[in-house]
């Protein structure tokens, strides 16, 4: 394991470039990055064939550190750029990495439409319930009643579930893990990348600096421990009532379904169009 980890680090990190990274000690982003690299390593995809797109925020910096074709886009727009890349070069493996505010507030519309459009893309959303980089403002996944720098008297809006949103919007594959469940996470990311269609992996992560501290949830270790205690697998969750599931995070594969992929469908469009040549 240790040898593999070193091999992966040497193979995929831009170690001679822009390190040290910008993430706080204990941040979950590094765990997600490692899981992504393990998945790609196992899949034996050439680095030249991977495009990693991100938005703005702490998660947005991840591509900077990785030796792929990397694309650090504008806030919330990673999936729009990724859509362009994928449609232009369908053979590339395109992964978008986003945060909760990035993917579901400013980029919420792109997120649901990317799910509906069903390109063969992978979206990894690191959900830490807060805008970390800008200093701890509430996001669409900040729980009701919690404290942030823009809800100092208690948060009065309701959060939504990113994974369930993706299911409803039509994603082919939807899974959830937490940063405590690193091994599960890389298996889910691998499954998502192998999936033909739009695949979402939501990762529940810790921002102990901006969220945990203000809400008395402790440090990184405390938060990871609580992820461990409050998580429940999909198969176990199926046996519980909604009341019993209250406060629990369901992890595992939530949806896996076969649907036409728009890059494949577009090939058919081209065939149909070529038969009408000259009739414009």
């Amino acid at each position: 394991m240790a040898v593999t980890a070193q091999k992966i680090r040497h193979e995929y990190l831009r170690h001679n470039k822009k390190f040290p990274h910008v993430w706080c000690p204990g941040c979950g982003n590094g765990i997600v990055m490692a899981a992504l690299l393990r998945a790609i390593y196992r899949m034996e995809i050439s680095k030249d064939d991977v495009v990693l797109a991100s938005g703005i925020g702490c998660s947005g910096r991840m591509p900077t550190y990785l030796d792929f074709n990397t694309l650090h886009t504008t806030h919330g727009r990673a999936l729009t750029f990724a859509t362009g890349v994928k449609l232009a070069k369908p053979d590339l493996n395109v992964v978008a990495i986003m945060g909760d505010g990035d993917a579901t507030a400013i980029g919420g519309n792109h997120f649901i439409h990317a799910a509906r459009r069903n390109l063969n893309l992978t979206a990894i959303i690191i959900n830490n319930s807060i805008y970390g980089m800008t200093g701890g403002q509430y996001s669409p996944t900040t729980p009701f009643g919690s404290t942030s720098t823009t809800s100092v008297y208690g948060h009065i809006e309701h959060d939504f579930s990113i994974a369930e949103l993706a299911v409803t919007a039509g994603a082919s594959f939807v899974a959830r893990a937490t940063v405590y469940h690193g091994e599960l996470m890389d298996r889910l990311i691998e499954q998502a990348m192998r999936k033909r269609g739009f695949a979402v992996v939501e990762v529940i992560s810790n921002c102990h600096v901006q969220y945990g501290r203000r809400n008395k949830l402790g440090g990184a270790v405390d938060m990871l421990t609580s992820f461990k205690e409050n998580s429940i697998t999909v198969s176990k969750a199926e046996k519980l009532s909604p009341e019993e599931l209250e406060g629990k995070t369901t992890i595992g594969v939530l949806t896996d379904r076969e649907m036409p992929i728009s890059t494949e469908e577009y090939k058919k469009v081209r065939e149909r169009a070529s038969k009408t040549k000259g009739k414009i």
């Binding site: 797109a53 694309l71 886009t73 729009t80 859509t83 362009g84 890349v85 449609l87």
Partner: peptide, 20 residues
């Protein structure tokens, strides 16, 4: 491709241009 809005349209043409 018809995108969900003009923000996305602009993003998509940049992505595709970067892909060549």
């Amino acid at each position: 491709v018809q995108m969900e809005d003009e923000i996305a349209s602009m993003g998509a043409i940049i992505g595709a241009s970067l892909a060549g």
